[in-house]
Structure formats: structure tokens, C-alpha cells
Design a protein around this nucleic acid. Structure first.
Lengths: 143, 143
DNA sequence: CGATTGACTTGCATAATGCAAGCTAATAGC
DNA sequence: GCTATTAGCTTGCATTATGCAAGTCAATCG
């Protein structure tokens, strides 16, 4: 949520809903965290088919609200990188909770092989691995 | 989602977003699971202030999509009870992940005392306790 | 140097949400 | 048993969000 805006309530679950509870924000953050996609064109390619105007607006909001940082792409000056902040990386447990729920209750959902089991066996370790992985890619991209 | 409706993608995170990713569904389920509220009027009283038409429509959808079961309230024939199915109870880990995220990243969020610590110390046990608690209340209400 | 790509913006149609009022059956108070 | 209140809605309308198609513009590719 924007810094000066008040939430509908003090409830922590409501806070999350108001932050990333629209139909697209969480999917963009999923792309960033679980698929290592950092560019506008990469988000656009995801299966859900986000409209370009919505994507642009949502990226602005996610930057404004501290979920993403926008940086120049050193490899292509037309492009920018949208890199995750801690605010986003701390959503990893929630993303896995969502995956676990769908694995049980949405028979049509395709669960990426292995990752959910790895998380179940060692949540903190798997999270730490994902984070360090992303940090490493970031270093490679921003040098 | 409605039974015959296809999802935007096969992604499990998208499946959850399409099921309860609107601004209200998850808050209603929070009321049911964490606050033991089962009635229309109780949902209406929550701080977020849901509009009556939205609440009615959302309850219908949550029943249709298998999150809630509607039963007669034995104590008052005007009233109905909206009771959680397993589909809803299995959202407990996600609700706690949301609470934990807000506890860290939303300073204005008020975290209910003790429950998050209890969940951190023993997730499965705390979940089981919540579930058996709700089941017990249900028995008391539906006898 | 012309064609393509990346990252948008603009305009407009449709859908979702929000607000206020009203309505009906059941219950509570007297 | 008559009246007021409550529970659970529905309806109408304004506002906001989302979706779709097209267009812009600078950087890059061939």
C-alpha cells in the first residue's frame, strides 16, 4: 500500500490482501522469486496473459510499495530489471503455502517437480537457497 | 472457481489467486477459521466493512466453490451457519504465513497475542488444535 | 538503414466493487 | 398479539478496476 494510505483494518491478513491481493501482483512476484524473471517482457510472457497497461501500472505500484527495485539492465539499455526486496523474498513461505494448498485441492494445478518436497523437508534451508540463488543472479546482472 | 471454468494457467499459485484472490474471500475465511464467526451478520461486523451485496455474492461463491457449507442455524431460524470445509481448513498455514509476513513488514498490523509464536513453535500441532476447536464448536451448533 | 524488440501509453468497453435504500420472514419485548 | 428490531438478503446506480487493441518511441539487430 502507498505510504500515506490507511488500511481498512489493523488485521495482518488484511494488510497482505491489500498489498498483493489483486489478481496480478502475487503472480508477478512469483515470476521474480520462483522463476527468476526480472523484465517487463518476461512477465508478459507468463501463461496468465497480463495486459500491458495493467502490467505497467502494477510494476509501478510494486516499486512504490517497496516490493521491487527498478534498475537499468546493463545488457540492454531499452530494458530495466525489477529486482526483489526483502519484502518480496519474505513472501516465499506464503508462496509455498499456496503451492501446497493447490497441490491438495486443485487437481488441475501442475506442481513443479521436487521443490515442494524440498520445502516440506527443510523450509528454512530451501528458502535460504532460493534467496542466495536470486542474490547471485542479481550480482551477475548488475555488475 | 466454478467447476466448469478453466483457470488462466496451470500454476498452483495462480489457482489460489483465482480461488480466493479477490479483496474479500480470504477475509471471510479468516473470520471463519481464526475468529469462529459463521454468520452473515458476524462477517458484516468485521472492521473492513464489506458491503452487503458483496458479502451475499461472495458467500454464494464460497459455498459453490466448496469452501463453506451452509446449514440452518438451530438457534435462530432466520439465520444460517457458514461452516468451513477441509478446503478452507487447509488454508490455515497460508493464513499464518500472511500473519508472519505482516508482522515483519507492516508495522501498523496488530498481531493477535501468542498465536503466531505457537504456530512457529509447532505448526502441525497448532493447526490441529484450531481444527479440532472449530469441529467442536460445529458439533455444539448443529446438534 | 530498415525491421524488430522492449517498454510503455492511450482510448475505450466491460466487469467488479462500493453505497444507500428497500424488502421479507423470524424473533424479542411488552 | 402487536410493534419494533434483527438477520439476510436484493435492487439501482455511481465509481473503480480490469481487459483489449492500437499506437508511440528509443534502442538494437541484421
Amino acid at each position: 500500500m502507498p505510504v500515506g494510505t490507511s488500511l481498512r483494518s489493523a488485521c495482518p491478513i488484511n494488510a497482505l490482501v491489500e498489498s498483493v491481493g489483486d489478481p496480478w501482483s502475487l503472480l508477478i512476484l512469483r515470476d521474480v522469486v520462483l522463476r527468476r524473471r526480472f523484465r517487463y517482457s518476461e512477465f508478459q510472457r507468463s501463461d496468465e496473459g497480463i495486459a500491458t497497461n495493467i502490467l505497467a501500472e502494477r510494476l509501478k505500484r510494486l516499486v512504490r510499495d517497496g516490493f521491487l527495485e527498478k534498475r537499468a539492465d546493463p545488457g540492454d539499455r531499452r530494458s530495466s530489471l525489477f529486482l526483489p526486496t526483502d519484502r518480496t523474498l519474505d513472501l516465499i513461505p506464503l508462496l509455498f503455502a499456496a503451492m501446497a494448498w493447490s497441490a491438495r485441492h486443485e487437481p488441475t494445478a501442475e506442481i513443479p517437480a521436487g521443490i515442494l518436497e524440498a520445502y516440506r523437508a527443510d523450509p528454512l534451508g530451501t528458502t535460504a537457497m532460493l534467496v542466495s540463488d536470486i542474490r547471485q543472479i542479481q550480482e551477475g546482472l548488475t555488475v
